[in-house]
Design a protein around this nucleic acid. Structure first.
Lengths: 138, 138
DNA sequence: AATTTAATGCAACATCATTGCAAATATAGA
DNA sequence: TCTATATTTGCAATGATGTTGCATTAAATT
């Protein structure tokens, strides 16, 4: 799907800023921080606008947001409506690729049955299949 | 165990600053951000010193550090050496109590077998047993 | 008590995030 | 296609958060 279609689908105005950011994020399965995007678009978009575009996309669930182990907030495109709620992510430490993971098994959550679970944030970091493959090639 | 013993055990100098912070954190099973502690000790300890005390305690594993869903870095006392490595936490949204959880089951991690898992960060948020109990009392 | 070594406070700075407002731009309707 | 309206953007200012260097103070060792 095209970026412009996605904006229309969510009844968002089609602006240059939004197209730039969305096309960029759609082009790769990587997660970016605000700082990353700020550098990427330093000549074209104001920092504050980037914050606002991210905020808007997040509200529409065009993007997923998660926090890495260094408390960096990362944004990644999520082929929309596919991932409704908060879900686990795998992030490759080498290529920064992000993979959306299935929910945790119920029997683990059942361990917590005395408590009422509201949210569950899981981030797995490591080396992805592709990068492992490349290492073997060498 | 007393705060002073813990400091000795880790060959850390026993200073007023460290005793204040450690006693405070040991007295309750809650997680605090740097900002929380800064407010708590605003009259007694310099902000920078709080950063440095936290850094030192973390290196000794006297504290656990984790990041919540709002990218706030939280510190919680951990009866030491009990929790060697990174492990999941449950944080109560009502009383802020933090409970240290067991590691994830291997069969979930096995799901990721194509990838090489290096770190795994899990934070569960919800309402703890105690707070649920109190609600029923009303 | 004197010496050595480490910790603290302070000031300055760097980074990251938010807000209000005026100017620019996208959309809807004539 | 032009105009009116509502939204988005850029800019400036501010606030929050985190880091560093250095002089001073305090803890441990002898």
């Amino acid at each position: 799907m095209e970026a412009i279609e996605i904006l229309n689908q969510h009844k968002l105005r089609v602006t240059n800023t939004r197209l730039l950011v969305l096309n960029f994020l759609m082009a790769q399965q990587k997660a970016f921080s605000h700082a990353d995007l700020e550098i990427q678009f330093s000549k074209q978009i104001n920092r504050v606008s980037i914050y606002r575009v991210l905020y808007t996309f997040l509200a529409c669930k065009i993007l997923c947001k998660f926090v890495d182990s260094n408390a960096r907030v990362l944004y990644v495109f999520s082929a929309q409506s596919q991932h409704q709620d908060e879900h686990p992510h795998f992030k490759c430490n080498q290529c920064d690729q992000v993979i959306h993971l299935p929910q945790l098994p119920q029997d683990y959550i059942a361990l917590l049955k005395e408590h009422q679970v509201e949210q569950l944030h899981l981030l797995v970091e490591g080396v992805c299949k592709d990068c492992l493959g490349e290492e073997k090639m060498k």
